[in-house]
């Protein structure tokens, strides 16, 4: 394992300190407990938005803190959900009197720790609503399982919920918009190489020189199936099929098409993927009206990508276009 780290135990604290130093115009960093909060929090009268989860998915979530998006992000250890205490502290730090929305990816650990934090916040008089993001179609949804995982679609939920809070929606309305996005966003990913958790020092899985993992999660957890490497276009088709058939997306839909890099994929490859995905959508009569391409929901240095499609309507489009000012996503200001 070769990494630009000092003591693996300090990866998160040092990275968060560096993040705070690099983006002091946007965020303040609390070190004990660890969370990242926008400089001007709490914003009086505005619904606060908090997200978080294991580290290793950067820029999600710290890079998404700022006006128009998250009020705070709570990073846990690498690939391990944060404990309730920093979530609670961040929640209190962003409560401007209008309550706080927790945006939680659907993993048992995240769900349980955010749940505890929400209970504790409520006990302290902070109104909290939680939404669960579960956009990954690689995993079959079922009442009898932990359900689908939350992956790159989370970025879109956070942007749009952030815009709703920014325009002054109340907690219930912000939560409803977030839930509407969750209902209309679907994703699926592929890995070409594994990732290495710093304190583990070993790849969490191995892939032969000609193998790829379809339906990979964002923690290097095994996916849907392991197949031989194929041309990019064929891989895109394999991911888009289950995504489009799920809601389903149909001719005439307007969508946001998001090609997300897993951290170690060259940008040329992401655009080769985008090209094919846009082509397939056009063939199906689905209109791509908004786009996003880049490393947003990563799995450390994993090579691979995910495709996310979000069905847009006028309101969601307006909220997507609204100004945002974060380290990773910025426009309109």
């Amino acid at each position: 394992m070769k990494k630009l780290v000092n003591d693996p135990k300090n990866v998160v604290t040092e990275a968060v300190a560096g993040f705070g130093a690099a983006h002091a115009d946007l965020v303040r960093v609390s070190t004990d407990p660890i969370y990242i909060v926008r400089t001007d929090a709490p914003v009086a009268g505005k619904v606060g938005i908090v997200s978080g989860g294991g580290s290793g998915h950067e820029p999600m979530h710290g890079g998404l803190v700022g006006p128009g998006m998250l009020d705070a992000a709570v990073p846990g250890a690498v690939f391990t959900s944060p404990t309730p205490d920093p979530i609670l502290a961040a929640t209190k730090a962003v409560d401007g009197g209008a309550g706080v929305l927790h945006i939680v990816k659907n993993y048992t650990g995240d769900v349980l720790n955010f749940e505890t934090a929400a209970d504790l916040a409520a006990a302290d008089g902070v109104e909290v609503r939680s939404v669960l993001v579960n956009d990954d179609v690689a995993v079959k949804d079922s009442l009898y399982t932990a359900g689908r995982r939350g992956v790159a679609g989370t970025v879109l939920v956070e942007k749009i919920a952030g815009a709703a809070a920014d325009r002054g929606d109340d907690l219930e309305s912000v939560a409803l918009v977030a839930e509407r996005v969750i209902g209309q966003v679907r994703s699926m990913g592929v890995a070409l190489t594994p990732c290495v958790v710093p304190h583990a020092g070993q790849p969490s899985f191995t892939l032969a020189e000609d193998e790829i993992e379809i339906g990979i999660g964002i923690h290097g957890e095994p996916g849907r199936e392991r197949i031989k490497l194929e041309p990019a276009d064929a891989i895109v088709d394999r991911l888009l099929g289950p995504i489009l058939d799920d809601i389903p997306f149909v001719a005439g839909d307007k969508v946001l098409l998001f090609v997300n890099g897993m951290g170690g994929t060259p940008q040329v490859e992401l655009y080769i993927v985008f090209r094919r995905a846009a082509e397939v959508l056009a063939e199906r009569g689905i209109e791509v009206t908004r786009t996003l391409v880049g490393n947003f929901t990563t799995a450390l240095e994993m090579q691979g990508m995910s495709i996310t499609v979000l069905k847009l309507d006028d309101e969601l489009t307006t909220l997507w276009d609204a100004p945002v000012q974060t380290a990773a996503l910025r426009w309109g200001r």
Binding site: G76, A77, T80, S81, P82, T83, T108, G109, T116
Partner: peptide, 12 residues
């Protein structure tokens, strides 16, 4: 455990 583990096993 709740405040030092995180993940699923911490709360459980």
């Amino acid at each position: 455990l709740v405040t030092s583990v995180g993940g699923a096993s911490g709360p459980l």
